[in-house]
């Protein structure tokens, strides 16, 4: 893209970060009383809200229920005011149903669904403000919401994006970098075992560069997992002190 320099000669990006630096992360658990679990997540200017209901009896058609494990139902949506251009986003458009499917696949890899036969777990995520890395913000918020709901998981699922500009991998892309025409790789990782829950890449990349890009995304995910870990432990401490009799 002409005129927009994604990485300066000094090694700084558009928003002043270094190549491997993440954006500021903030999160809170248990934001709603009504739901079984909920969380709010800010990754830079991307803001996501996740709510978990369940495990509960399968609603709607009973044929969906599985006799040996729980069904995970994800719904992704974006607020009308989430992007620069105000736009009505009807439910079930192609982009959001694809994202819902990706979220479902990610969490089927992490949640111990076989413990809850014939049940259903609902995960609803909403992007309140979009500035790149929507998928990763959703995954991270949903992870916190699942932990809040007390649903058993193998490990946290941490997701992060990475891009490739001028032979340098960039971690945690913002909207300007994502739309800059380069490659974007989204990675969802179970950080302790380093097993991949989902990886997705749009645009082309020379295969020699792939290991470097994957490495950058993995490191970013692990950095993110530390932040999530802190948030969960903090929450745990607060609540357990409160409930102590």
């Amino acid at each position: 893209m002409a005129g927009l320099e994604l990485l300066s000669d000094q090694g700084y990006r558009l928003d002043g970060r270094k190549a491997t630096e993440l954006r500021k992360l903030q999160a809170r658990m248990g934001v709603f009383g009504q739901a079984d679990g909920s969380a709010y997540m800010e990754q830079g200017n991307t803001k996501a809200l996740a709510v978990v209901y369940g495990p509960h009896e399968v609603r709607g058609s009973r044929s969906k229920s599985l006799h040996d494990r729980a069904v995970i139902n994800c719904q992704y949506s974006m607020a009308t005011f989430s992007t620069a251009e105000r736009k009505r986003r009807p439910h079930g458009d192609r982009k959001s149903s694809e994202m819902s499917l990706h979220l479902k696949q990610t969490f089927e890899a992490a949640v111990l669904t076989q413990l809850y036969p014939r049940s259903q777990i609902d995960i609803y995520v909403k992007i309140l403000q979009s500035d790149g890395g929507n998928y990763s913000a959703c995954v991270n918020a949903a992870t916190l919401a699942l932990v809040d709901a007390g649903i058993p998981m193998r490990d946290y699922v941490c997701a992060c994006t990475a891009g490739f500009v001028e032979d340098t991998p960039l971690a945690d892309l913002c909207h300007a970098e994502e739309s800059g025409g380069g490659t974007t790789l989204s990675l969802a990782l179970l950080p302790r075992s380093e097993s991949i829950a989902l990886v997705q890449m749009d645009a082309r990349l020379h295969q020699d560069h792939l290991p470097a890009l994957m490495e950058a995304a993995t490191v970013a995910c692990k950095g993110l997992s530390k932040v999530l870990d802190d948030v969960v432990r903090q929450h745990l401490q607060e609540v357990s002190v409160q409930t102590r009799e």
């Binding site: 946290y156 432990r233 745990l236």
Partner: peptide, 8 residues
């Protein structure tokens, strides 16, 4: 004295 853990 509480042993608190997180998933994983």
């Amino acid at each position: 004295g509480k042993h608190l853990v997180v998933p994983g």
